[in-house]
Amino acid sequence: MNDIFTTLGFSSATPVGLQAYLIVGALLFVFGLVAAMARRNAIGILIGIELILNAAILNFMAFWRFAGGEAAGGGAMAGPLFGVFIIILAACEAAIALAILLSLYFNFGTVDVDSIRQMKR
């Protein structure tokens, strides 16, 4: 248990460890999962997906920082590069999702995902 407190950064003799970042990532992931599953507003679902993607990038970065020290070649910068690619794809996803959402709103007059049950009017 003492180990855990050290790796979580409560002692100032050692830096915050890998597990602290992983736990924050897990929390963000669970928050995003709740939002994506329980929200009825489609934009709320989108917010949940953004939270999940951020948790994923955080995990990539944490593993890169703490376990990627010996990586060479393409792996030497794997953390930030994967982060950049995830952010690019998140931008794509947000643009398309909002386009679909606006289209839904024009057609059905609502973005409540429970009341939209067909793909065309």
Binding site: I43, L46, E50, M61, W64, I87, A90, A91, L101
Partner: peptide
């Protein structure tokens, strides 16, 4: 991301996520 050693990714996050995706979400 800054703490983890990549200021570039942090700037990317602020520019694209906060400046782009979030504004898009709020517009939505």
């Amino acid at each position: 991301y800054i703490l983890l050693g990549s200021a570039f990714l942090a700037v990317t996050q602020v520019v694209i996520y906060v400046g782009g995706i979030l504004v898009l979400l709020i517009f939505g």
